[in-house]
Design a protein around this nucleic acid. Structure first.
Length: 781
DNA sequence: AAAATAGGGAGCGACA
DNA sequence: TGTCGCTCCCTATTTT
């Protein structure tokens, strides 16, 4: 019983190494290949020989060819017809590039750009990380094996941005089950400390420790820890032979990002996963730790590290240790989901860790396509890609809300609207206007297109498989829940159904993703078009039934009972149930409208901006300034308190008081400086901005003071007093001499709360008038 | 991926 | 000639 955790092509042994938990299988038979749109073997060879002659090469190219054979396949790009073409197999993976570049001039090629080990995973059955019987090539069970996991983090002695040429690594921390250690080149008084005499010894020790583990977690290790460690190792003439079989670490650079790969182990960088899975305003390790565990990590600030090091301050050791400790905990939290993605998509954990959801969908489609004997469409050329990027289409429907406060609200939404539309209408790039159903009668046209009635397309088919699998997993989960069996298997299955949901929901985005092989703008457009039809029709039906729809966005709506009578909550929910049954009987099989929630009160401000409170006094805020990062805390806190007063207490007077109190605090200079900070992201390089804006001006000021600013950084600033433009008065917290009270009152406090009040019909003047008592029921609609 | 809101800057005409 | 107010453009962010 064994488990595949990684695989790599070994260029010394000239074969694929399948790294199992406790052994290595050498796969010598699998060879790289691609397809060419020609059945004439001789002509293909002739073309290669001509090339050799022309470039004065000894049969170097033809030697790369292992074999050329005729195969019968359905070619996706050629009207989905079965036809004969040639499969060109070459001897080694790096031959593919050479041979394909020559043959491209001869005929059209297919599947020539799939990395070799990914190709292996597409063509073979083995499911990564499962318990797999390699003798009989079949699954034993789905349990997650006992991996030895460790987290790893380094600290560097530097005053400015770390420079690997001169700034030494001073500490390395590790955390695993039962082993937490900070290896340091100085002696500190701390129970986790392990002392080594110099940096060279430290690097040796890092290698020694990491080589004990199957999975290594880092936070941004792809771009920082490993590349830095490698450069420092070079300084001492050391090699990072971290692989299972003493292979060297492979650091590859692609554009802005690099990847750090350790053969036979799995390096999991948690930073990209956190960005993908969590919805936060900042993604530094401390933000993620706080979001997941509600703990504030010890923070020392990078600029203080050298000082603390020189003074032998143990806080530095604690800081380094906590970095590793929380990295490990975040890793344990994310690993199961990554494992499930890896199993469902059938690609290695390392690759899955670095794939976007569109890429995962693509590899799932490649696998399904291979299993059906279909040759996948090619990725777009530069010109085609540009065309795709420019083309745009209409998206979801958003209904103008009935502004103001409403009570007894029921929300209903479609269960996976877009996936169910794609399935029920068979939307796929090869089913759109297919040849096989062209002359059939009674075919409905959608935006001038017809969809195949005979064969299920690859996109809907892949979706159906996912949905079916999810349904059966959820069925087992329900059974287990009934029997109170919340055991390990329950957790695994729960992660499985979650990963499937993510993949299913990514198919619509994939259709519109410009780099996609199975791109189809028309299918994407038709998906949203049908989505708009379904939601609008459903709103109509709901209103005919007796509901009043307050607001709707894309796949769901908020409504209340409008038939004059006042219903109790139970009566309202009963009506909802009856309505859902009626509507679901009319909808296609795959589609389902469901009850989402009951709210005792809600305030709707504009499209995409509203707040609701449920029976447990839980407030949900959407789109309002409270949930945006580019508003200061004073502003957000005030709006939050006002919302509280309105939704919880139903008290307009209290809301007014909150506003007046904050204004007083601002005028008295009692507001904390941090709470005045406005955070805005730099989304491009400073020189690329066409207009002046506060955050860009601040970025320039930061650069002038000698600090680095990168694209993607979040710039924080305070608006100081004066009479120049706002941009000119924006300052980083360190240099902000004061703050502009008037700006914060007029531009930060008032606009967000006035918008709330105006939704209730209270004017600015009424807000200022403290004599007139206003109660909420004046505004209930 | 599109829909949508909103702030700040810049340009422009009206007006004193 | 300065400034007010309107409108348009650019930019950031969120919701689905």
């Amino acid at each position: 019983m064994e488990s595949l955790i990684d695989l790599d092509y070994n260029s010394e042994d000239l074969c694929i190494y399948l790294y199992l938990l406790n052994e290595i299988i050498k796969e010598k038979d699998f060879k790289p290949y691609f397809y060419i749109n020609s059945t004439d073997k001789e002509q293909i060879l002739e073309f290669l020989k001509d090339y050799e002659k022309k470039h004065k090469l000894d049969s170097e190219i033809t030697k790369m060819i292992e074999k050329i054979e005729t195969v019968k396949k359905i070619v996706f790009d050629q009207d989905y017809q079965e036809k004969e073409l040639s499969k060109v197999t070459v001897k080694y993976p790096n031959n593919v590039k050479t041979v394909r570049e020559i043959l491209m001039e001869f005929e059209r090629l297919y599947e020539y750009d799939i990395p070799f080990i990914r190709r292996y995973m597409i063509d073979n059955k083995v499911i990564p990380t499962s318990n797999w019987d390699f003798k009989n090539n079949k699954l034993i069970d789905n349990k997650i094996p006992e991996f030895k996991t460790v987290s790893f983090d380094i600290e560097v002695y530097c005053h400015k941005g770390p420079d690997p040429k001169k700034d030494p690594i001073i500490m390395a921390s590790f955390s695993s089950k039962g082993h937490n250690v900070v290896v340091s080149t100085k002696k500190f008084d701390h129970d986790k400390l392990e002392y080594v005499k110099d940096e060279k010894e430290l690097i040796k020790r890092i290698i020694e420790i990491l080589k004990d583990y199957d999975i290594i977690y880092t936070y941004n290790g792809d771009n920082f820890d490993f590349p830095y460690l490698k450069k420092r190792a070079e300084v001492f003439g050391l090699e990072l032979k971290l692989g299972k079989n003493d292979e060297k670490i492979k650091i590859t650079k692609g554009g802005m990002n690099s990847k750090s790969y350790i053969p036979g182990r799995v390096h999991i960088d948690l930073y990209p996963i956190a960005r993908r899975l969590l919805n936060l305003t900042k993604y530094r390790l401390e933000n993620v730790t706080e979001a997941l565990f509600d703990v504030k990590k010890v923070d020392v600030g990078h600029e203080n590290i050298p000082k603390m090091w020189d003074k032998l301050d143990e806080t530095l050791v604690e800081y380094s240790y906590q970095d590793a400790y929380y990295t490990q905990r975040i890793g344990e939290q994310f690993l199961p989901l990554e494992i499930m993605f890896s199993r469902v998509v059938n690609q290695s954990l390392y690759d899955i860790n670095r794939m976007s959801s569109s890429q995962m969908v693509e590899y799932l489609l490649l696998k399904n396509s291979y299993n059906k004997g279909v040759i996948a469409p090619n990725r777009p050329s530069g010109k085609e890609y540009q065309k795709r990027i420019r083309s745009s289409y209409e998206g979801g429907y958003v209904k103008e809300p009935i502004k103001g406060i409403h009570e007894d609200i029921v929300s209903m939404d479609f269960l996976s609207l877009y996936p169910s539309i794609i399935m029920s209408h068979n939307l796929s790039p090869e089913t759109i206007d297919c040849d096989c159903c062209n002359n059939e009668e009674n075919e409905e046209e959608i935006l001038g297109h017809k969809f195949c009635k005979k064969n299920i397309g690859i996109i809907p088919k892949t979706l159906m498989d996912l949905i079916d699998r999810r349904k059966s997993v959820k069925k087992i989960l329900r059974e287990k829940a009934k029997n109170n069996e919340f055991d390990e298997e329950y957790q695994i299955l729960d992660y499985e159904q979650r990963s499937i949901k993510v993949l299913a929901n990514s198919h619509y985005g994939y259709l519109a993703f410009p780099m996609a092989r199975w791109y189809s703008r028309d299918c994407a457009e038709i998906t949203t078009h049908l989505g708009r039809q379904y939601i609008q029709k459903t709103i109509e039906e709901a209103e005919n039934f007796g509901f009043k729809v307050i607001y709707a966005d894309t796949d769901g709506f908020y409504s209340k009972w409008a038939n004059g009578e006042k219903l109790t909550k139970d009566e309202l929910l009963e009506k909802t149930k009856t309505f859902l049954k009626t509507i679901n009987d009319k909808l296609p099989g795959e589609m389902e409208l469901e009850f989402e929630g009951y709210f005792k009160r809600g305030i709707f401000v504009t499209k995409k901006k509203y707040a609701l409170i449920d029976e447990n006094e839980k407030i949900t805020v959407k789109g309002l300034e409270v949930v945006r990062r580019d508003w200061s805390n004073v502003s957000k806190n005030t709006q939050k308190s006002v919302l509280n007063a309105l939704l919880k207490e139903g008290n307009v007077e209290n809301a007014k008081k909150v506003i007046q109190d904050t204004i007083k605090e601002l005028k008295d200079g009692k507001v904390n400086k941090e709470d005045l900070l406005i955070h805005t992201q730099l989304t491009k390089r400073i020189e690329d901005y066409k207009t002046t804006s506060p955050h860009v001006e601040v970025a320039k000021k930061i650069m002038k003071s000698g600090n680095r600013v990168n694209t993607g950084d979040v710039i924080s600033y305070i608006i100081t007093s004066g009479n120049k433009s706002i941009s000119e008065r924006a300052e980083p917290i360190e240099t902000a001499k004061d703050y502009d009270t008037n700006y914060y009152i007029e531009n930060q406090i008032l606009p967000p709360v006035i918008r709330l009040m105006e939704a209730l019909g209270i004017t600015k003047d009424e807000l200022k008038d403290s004599k007139k008592q206003i109660t909420l029921h004046h505004f209930l609609k």
